[in-house]
Amino acid sequence: MSRFTKIALIGLILFPFAFLLMLSVGRQWPYPAVFPEQWALSNWQLVLGGSEGLGNSVLLSVLLSLSVATLSTGLSFWVSRHIAYHPKREAWLSLAYFPYVFAPVILAACLQFFFIVAGLYGTFGGVLLAQLFITFPYGVIFFSSFWNERLRSMEELVKTLGGSTLQAYAKVLVPVAKGALMTCFFQLFLISWFEYGLTNLIGVGKVPTLTLRVFQYVNEANIFLAALASCLLILPPVALLWLNRAVVFRERIVP
């Protein structure tokens, strides 16, 4: 790929981010002006200054999404291995699609009823579990194509040499899967981070993640505020990506 194409592609990728950032500091944008006529930080001040505990929400969101992503990635990695080596692999795997054959909004409405009955309603644990329902099967599908005969024989080798299952994971499977694990983790982190419907219905607003706090602003008539809320939603995952790039992106990633 030529250097020019590369730069053009990167420019294309960065455009939405630049566009949203530009609008978030704008005021008065009559047609056909290409850029807003005035610039102001007033929206940022209004939202950051006016929303008590926004920082706590960020912490809560990070904690929730990290827990969901860690649990789901770990569990689905472990479970998908047992599915992949099962004789009826395809039939098992088809179960993983179940959560996605149901319209998400209705899923939330149905689950709300069951979570109330189970007494998990309005709690951090309840929201965590609800998010596992949508992230875990995704992880299983994600890892389903990872397992193959080559890995299996490597695992066998560890066993023959007297290693335990734990050692097989620690010394062989996890190092080989590192890239895939990180990619999956990031995907699941994002799903959890942006989750609105279930988190709101199951948490009854008592688990006020950042997404819950600013989500409604994205539907605001004030486009500058909507753009600002969009930035607030997007920037933390981008920062995570940036922090992790050394770990994730120097690796060869196996889907």
Partner: peptide, 23 residues
Amino acid sequence: TKGMLSFFIYLPLSIPAIVMAFF
């Protein structure tokens, strides 16, 4: 999988549907 694009290509994944709709 290598070089600059291997980082940048991940960025669009961090845009959720509601923001994409607005955009």
